[in-house]
Design a protein around this nucleic acid. Structure first.
Lengths: 226, 226
DNA sequence: CTATTAATATGATATATGTCATATTAATGC
DNA sequence: GCATTAATATGACATATATCATATTAATAG
């Protein structure tokens, strides 16, 4: 069983507030899992009863809309936690989590984590700040969806993917999303997404080679995204 | 100086976790204010350094989008708190608050509230749960904006206003929003909002008399909202 | 390696929604 | 009470985006 002390999640997440004893205790109750690309970690409405620590990989959080389409609400990557809101609210998760790449995660049961809230105020504050950050981001997304055009949202999302997940040696975006997934992030039809990517390509803002997307003109994309 | 013990905000908000001593302390440091309809309580980017307790009235929380239009993110009413996220994140507020009616609010300085986080775990949990609820709601709004039509959103919003704020003796919606504000809630142009209201009126789903809106057919509105 | 399926791409068209113009009505100040 | 401004309403039109059809290309299974 690997040590939580040296884990990347401990370094970047709310867990950084835990002391040695607490981390040892954590290591004792966690379970590790390998998750394959496309696998479902949990599904909207499920009772998760704990949190996931992402040691490696990226997943999408999606929400089913009444019309039956999935919408990608957020991408979550290594170093981050999953399922905090649901645990605190003591409710089923309101989003589904699906791996976009092979992942390595640990699961910590709710009972264990809830104990830290009582005993470790810094941990509580960290979790709260994380969720507050999520809330701010969510509000901003809502306004973007309501006020920006699809083109603006696409430009913004491409820059977000570039800034958050970086690029490969050939400069293409490191994170691989299907056109369908990209469309589901920006809230549009797949065809519209493809069409606009095609337009951006023709304008020299990006380059499309197979599934690979390469950002060519950051400043122009920024301008388009407003 | 009025007592916090008997205040409606104490009854409904996270503050219900506070004991008598804590409430007395609160009463000593709070400042009361009357706010007139249309007045700004705080503006996006401001440092608020505390929270507001809404004793009476309703306000809108708005966010300015890059294109210069305001979007109404949320309505907040008596019994609720304002400015928690900003206080916890230790950041400027990311939304503006403007009174939709005459309001009565109390302001509690940050220093005072932050003390409760350390000493009163139930209070911490209450605040966390509130913010988690806001987050869930915000995600749901994002998906609605991305996936639903303006018509669906209008129907949904009318039902929300009806269910949350109730009706007058003449059955019209208690809360008074201008067409402009309603449009800014559902994320559309004022003219489109007016047009759809007009359509709903002709279909007998609602009744329009001056600014007053009366819900006539809840189940059909529900159907439209999906 | 080939067959089958899924993903990407593009055209044609329909439709929802935004924008601009202009009434009409209500609210407000003097 | 009248003038001025703001809010509501409606028409005409432009345009962004969705939908449906159909290639084309890539991925996958057998």
């Amino acid at each position: 069983m690997s040590k939580c002390e040296e884990c990347i999640v401990r370094e970047f997440s709310s867990l950084k507030a835990l002391n040695k004893d607490e981390l040892v205790k954590l290591a004792g109750c966690k379970t590790s899992r390998i998750i394959r690309k496309g696998d479902v970690i949990f599904e909207e409405g499920e009772n998760v009863n704990g949190i996931f620590c992402i040691k490696d990989g990226v997943c999408k959080l999606t929400k089913l809309s009444p019309n039956g389409k999935d919408h990608i609400v957020k991408l979550v990557t290594k170093g981050e936690l999953l399922g905090q809101r649901s645990m605190i609210s003591d409710e089923p998760v309101h989003l589904s989590a699906v791996a976009l790449e092979d992942m390595e995660v640990c699961f910590i049961p709710k009972t264990e984590v809830m104990g830290f809230f009582d005993k470790n105020n810094q941990f509580s504050m960290n979790v709260m700040k994380t969720i507050c950050g999520d809330l701010k981001e969510a509000d901003s997304h809502t306004v973007n969806m309501a006020q920006k055009t699809v083109k603006e949202r696409l430009a913004e999302t491409l820059l977000y993917l570039y800034n958050t997940f970086g690029k490969n040696e050939d400069d293409s975006l490191k994170i691989q999303l299907s056109r369908d997934e990209l469309a589901s992030m920006i809230g549009t039809a797949t065809e519209s997404c493809i069409r606009l990517l095609s337009d951006f390509n023709k304008l020299g803002l990006i380059e499309l080679v197979g599934k690979k997307i390469t950002i060519k003109d950051i400043s122009k994309l920024k301008k388009i995204s407003e």
